[in-house]
């Protein structure tokens, strides 16, 4: 009976240890391992390495407190959120924003005044809407500052309903 004329390729053994070979190949390696002490040792060395590595990691990370880490992360998130809010506040209320915003507001007020005057003074519709009936106004519709000329009589009166000013005069050469 021929025994162990060959050894499993180390790379194949590595794949076998990781369960990354096809089932028929795995079966062949398994059979070989039962018969070949050298390959079995190589296989055990892989397992020993694996357990040693995992022990090494767990030993060195055992001092790390996961809860503390979790708290730190949450603290940082809260802090970042606060900073973000603070930044937004600072940006909104900084001179860089406040001054241009104020200027913009002033410009808008000016524009509003322009448009108000333009719309309400130069078009028929709004003027009519804004026109206050003179009757509702106690002041006369017109104040006569001065008059002069070749006149015989000058009278200043008011209409009975809307109290519009009437300026009545007679030319000098006219018969009154």
């Amino acid at each position: 009976m021929q025994k162990n004329l060959y050894h499993i390729e180390p790379i194949m053994l590595s794949q076998f240890a990781d369960g990354e070979v096809k089932p028929d190949e795995a079966e062949r390696i398994r059979q070989h391992l039962s018969d070949c002490p050298d390959c079995r040792k190589a296989m055990n060395d892989n397992l020993f390495l694996s357990s040693h590595f995992n022990n090494y990691i767990s030993l060195n990370t055992s001092a790390i407190n996961p809860s503390a880490l979790e708290t730190k992360v949450l603290e940082k998130i809260h802090y970042k959120n606060e900073i973000l809010l603070d930044k937004i506040k600072r940006i909104l209320f900084s001179d860089k924003i406040l001054i241009p915003t104020s200027a913009m507001a002033s410009v808008l007020v000016i524009l509003f005044c322009f448009s108000y005057q333009f719309i309400y003074r130069n078009s028929d519709g709004p003027v009519n809407r804004l026109t206050v009936p003179t009757s509702a106004v106690s002041a006369p519709s017109a104040i006569v500052d001065s008059f002069s000329g070749e006149t015989t009589t000058v009278m200043i009166m008011e209409t009975p309903h809307s109290h519009e000013t009437i300026l009545w005069y007679n030319e000098k050469n006219e018969k009154v």
Partner: peptide, 23 residues
């Protein structure tokens, strides 16, 4: 988020330590 951290924190610490060897 806390649930996610609890689920993965140990694994991530191990991976990071496995690469950096610095706890």
């Amino acid at each position: 988020f806390v649930s996610l951290m609890r689920q993965y924190r140990a694994a991530l610490i191990n991976i990071a330590y496995g690469i950096t060897s610095d706890s």
